[in-house]
Amino acid sequence: MSARRSSHAWLDNELNDADVLPERRHKARARKPLGRRRIESLTADPETGDAADDVIRFLLDRGHLTEVVAELKSGKEATAYVARGPRGSVLLKLYRDLEARSFKRDGVYREGQVILDQRAARAMQGRTRKGLEMLQAGWVCAEYAHLWQLWRAGLNVPEPLVGPEPSEYAQTTPAVLMRLIGSEDAPAPRLSDASLTPEEARSAWRQAVQGMADLLRLGYAHGDYSTYNLLWWENTVIIIDFPQLTTRSNPNFQQLLRRDAESLATSFRRHGLTETAEQTLREVQRRALGPGPEPRVLLP
């Protein structure tokens, strides 16, 4: 583990506090790792009002959700569901247990972070049961923390619905709740799936490059930036998927930034654009020197 300090100093407290979630603490007995949840286990029983899944029960009891409606999309590390809450339509992202994910090589994104508790650091490096729980919590907390920072900075990202204090969103592990982009009947499609006119494609490209530049201006590389992690809604590009967001403290930062530029250029070819990775990166770097979006004002 690198000796350089992470920008997420709060992570030490959240990962190493064994009493953050006493009611959610895993039992020591062996259990099958949780992968993709069946929608039937996430919906409340009409007679009792209880859901079979303990995470959903917790979210219902705390008032974060009122109902899980349908599965939206399943990926390599999490499944997204359409849900409802006290503030309207919700995108519920439920991470699989680390042992059940097809995407497991997350170390490249975590380099440069510091975990001050050496026992915790060894547990995570050794991927012990406790270490995996810490990594899982860290992955979820990182997505919330990044969402809050980017949302406040004015970037086009989904609004996080739990927080902004880490002590609040740490309790929802392994779930991340954000405002649904689109509607329940027609959630916003990924750019990779959207049908665009040539004019729309050029607009989407400019917005996507600007979004990557806005991230770079804040000192971030996305780590997985392509049309698969960009939504298209009302002629606007919305950036999603932030747990692997990395900072300049990561020795792999430049490599990840270049890979983002290449992924963006490659994934836009289906929309008829033929920019190279080198051209894309230069344009991102040029735009990152300019002004950023207007920060959002959060009302009490």
Rank of each mutant, 00 (worst) to 15 (best):
D185G: 05
H146K: 13
L161A: 11
Q171M: 15
G163R: 10
L132Y: 11
V140D: 01
V140P: 02
M134K: 11
A175E: 14
E143L: 08
V162F: 10
A123C: 02
Q125Y: 11
N156V: 01
T172M: 09
Y144F: 15
D117V: 04
A137W: 09
L132R: 15
R179T: 03
A123Y: 01
L180H: 09
G154R: 05
H146G: 06
L135M: 13
C141Y: 02
A123L: 06
G126V: 00
S183Y: 10
P160V: 06
R152L: 14
L150V: 06
R119K: 13
A175W: 13
M134L: 14
G154W: 06
P160N: 07
P164F: 04
Q118D: 12
P164R: 03
G138W: 15
T172C: 11
L155F: 11
K130I: 01
V176W: 01
E184T: 12
Q136G: 08
W151L: 04
G163W: 15
A121K: 08
Q125K: 12
P166W: 09
Q149R: 13
E165I: 00
L132W: 08
Y169W: 15
P164Q: 05
Q149A: 14
A175S: 10
Q136H: 11
L177N: 03
N156R: 09
R179D: 06
A153G: 05
Q136A: 11
C141I: 12
L180C: 13
A137D: 14
L150N: 03
Q118M: 09
S167Y: 12
Q149D: 13
V176R: 01
Q136S: 13
N156T: 03
V157E: 02
D185R: 10
R179C: 00
R152C: 09
L155P: 05
Y144E: 04
L150P: 04
A153S: 12
K130P: 00
L147A: 08
L150H: 05
W139R: 13
A175T: 09
G138F: 12
A170R: 14
G126E: 15
A153Q: 03
A137I: 10
G138T: 06
Q125I: 10
R152V: 09
A145L: 02
D117Y: 07
I181K: 02
D185C: 01
Q171D: 09
P158E: 07
R152H: 07
N156A: 14
E165K: 05
A170F: 02
L161R: 07
E133L: 13
W151P: 00
L135V: 01
V176P: 00
A186P: 00
L177A: 02
S183A: 11
A120R: 05
A123G: 03
A145C: 00
R129D: 14
E133S: 06
V162N: 02
L161C: 07
V162W: 05
C141H: 06
M124I: 08
W148Y: 07
Q125S: 08
A137K: 12
Q136P: 03
R152W: 03
P174V: 10
